[in-house]
Simulated scan of single mutants.
Amino acid sequence: MPQPRTPAQAWSALVEGNDRFVRGAMEHPSQDVGHRAELSAAQAPFAVVFGCSDSRVAAEIIFDQGLGDLFVVRTAGHVVDTTVIGSIEYGVQVLGASLVLVLGHDSCGAVAAAAEALTTGRMPTGFVRAIVDRVIPSIVTLPEPGTPAGAGRALLAPTPEALGREHVRHTVEMLLSYSVGLSTAVADGRCAILGLEYALVDGRVRLVQAHGDVGQG
């Protein structure tokens, strides 16, 4: 199969791969001995995936891709720091990837810990706290339960799913606002940045946020 070159082609390839994974009809492309040998000289991944370190959300598996296809960056709770942004910029600016995915998932422990910290004031100990500290800004602006919402109605407490989606959206916006290189690539049409949510039970990814043209995927 020809390597995807445009953001739309890259997104289409990943949508098709995820559909194969959901159906249990994986093709396991780009994993043969010959391809492995070809990649020893250089790599040219078509997409960067920035996701959570959760052991149940391995990008190459859930998108049914192989060696050399995806440039993967992972942190617990897909929290952003300068090395993460530098790694993503490397995938786009040096390796030529035309798509960046921020891949969140349901039942995320980092999001749950951030929500608990906001609700109870209890913070984890050690360096795990640094993860929670970086998730909190994503969800702290969501309305508090009981806040008036017009017509005398009160807003309900955000669900865990809503908190996770907000964290994905916020992460996408952080990448665009912090990285001139990424925002320029998107503005020029050379790259798109998408926020996705992965469902642990059915294995399907769903689009949450998009910057750039990826067609009808």
Results as ranks from 00 to 15, higher is better:
Met1Tyr: 12
Met1Val: 01
Pro2Thr: 13
Arg5Asp: 04
Arg5Thr: 14
Pro7Asn: 02
Val15Gly: 00
Arg20Pro: 05
Phe21Leu: 00
Val22Phe: 01
His28Phe: 02
Gln31Thr: 10
Gly34Thr: 01
Glu38Lys: 06
Pro45Ala: 07
Ala47Tyr: 07
Val49Ala: 10
Ser53Phe: 04
Arg56Gly: 06
Val57Arg: 10
Glu60Asn: 02
Ile62Pro: 02
Phe63Cys: 00
Asp69Pro: 12
Leu70Phe: 11
Val72Lys: 02
Val84Gln: 15
Gln93Asn: 08
Val94Ala: 14
Leu99Arg: 09
Leu99Trp: 11
Leu99Thr: 08
Gly104Pro: 14
Ser107Val: 09
Ala114Arg: 10
Arg122Phe: 03
Pro124Asn: 09
Gly126Pro: 06
Pro137Glu: 07
Thr141Gly: 07
Leu142Ala: 12
Glu144Asp: 08
Gly146Cys: 12
Gly146Tyr: 12
Gly152Met: 14
Arg153Phe: 13
Arg153Thr: 13
Ala154Met: 12
Leu163Cys: 14
Val168Trp: 13
His170Gly: 04
Thr171His: 06
Ser179Arg: 08
Ala187Phe: 07
Gly189Lys: 06
Cys191Ala: 06
Ala192Ile: 05
Gly195Phe: 03
Glu197Tyr: 13
Glu197Arg: 15
Tyr198Ile: 08
Ala199Asn: 15
Leu200Ala: 05
Gly203Tyr: 01
Leu207Thr: 05
Gln209Ile: 00
Asp213Leu: 06
Gly217Cys: 13
Gly217Pro: 04
